[in-house]
Simulated scan of single mutants.
Amino acid sequence: MMKQKEFSIPFSGLKQGKHEFKYKIEKKFFESFEYDEFNGADIDLTVILNKTSTMLELDLRALGVVNVDCDLTSEPFDQKIDAKLELVVKFGDEYNDEDDELLIIPHGEHQVNIAQYVYEMLVLAVPQKRIHPGVVDGTLKSEALDKLAALQPKETKENKEENDPRWDTLKKLLTDK
């Protein structure tokens, strides 16, 4: 993974108070992390840096879409992304990023790189199960959906009404308590 230089925020020359940074995230950002689950990306990232004398507070907000493949039909579609992350940067003796919301950097540092945090926030914002909106509302027509419908078990009237008498006897045991 290469270090994303454009995501290094130099804070040493900034006055105390709030500062805003804007980024445009595309597919090449994810490729730099060797992540190939997205076909494309168009995400606007806004970072609000609140600098105080003892720490930095970063509010990250991402809005946009990533193009992913549907898990059912393999049809590509745009998945909306709306993600937030609050990160506190404190100064200490050595670098420590073990906590998800707290980053400790050495006292001599003059910039903070947020690329890893942005990457994790965006990847986690995409649902685990990706279903095309056309599948949900029934407007998508595809070979995969037709094949799934054809292979679905048929429920017939005979299967519903016909009971095995052995099971009826066993079911009485459950109700005879």
Rank of each mutant, 00 (worst) to 15 (best):
K3P: 08
E6G: 09
S8L: 12
S12V: 08
G13S: 10
L14Y: 04
K18L: 09
K18F: 01
H19R: 01
E20V: 13
F21T: 02
K22L: 13
K22F: 09
Y23K: 08
I25F: 04
I25D: 04
E26V: 13
K27Y: 08
S32A: 15
N39V: 08
A41L: 01
T46K: 10
V47C: 06
L49M: 07
N50D: 12
K51Q: 02
E57S: 07
E57T: 06
L58A: 01
L58D: 00
L60M: 07
L60T: 02
A62E: 05
L72Q: 15
P76C: 04
F77L: 08
D78R: 12
K90F: 09
N96C: 04
L103S: 02
I104Q: 14
P106N: 04
E109G: 07
V112M: 03
V118D: 00
V118E: 01
M121P: 01
L124Y: 10
P127H: 09
K129I: 03
R130G: 06
I131A: 03
H132Q: 11
P133W: 08
V136F: 05
D137G: 10
D137V: 04
E143D: 15
E143S: 15
A144V: 12
L145V: 07
A150E: 15
A150P: 12
Q152P: 07
Q152I: 05
P153A: 02
K154T: 08
E158P: 00
K160S: 02
N163E: 14
N163T: 08
D164E: 13
D164R: 01
P165V: 02
P165F: 00
T169F: 02
T169A: 15
K171H: 07
L174S: 14
T175H: 09
T175A: 11
D176F: 11
D176I: 10
K177D: 05
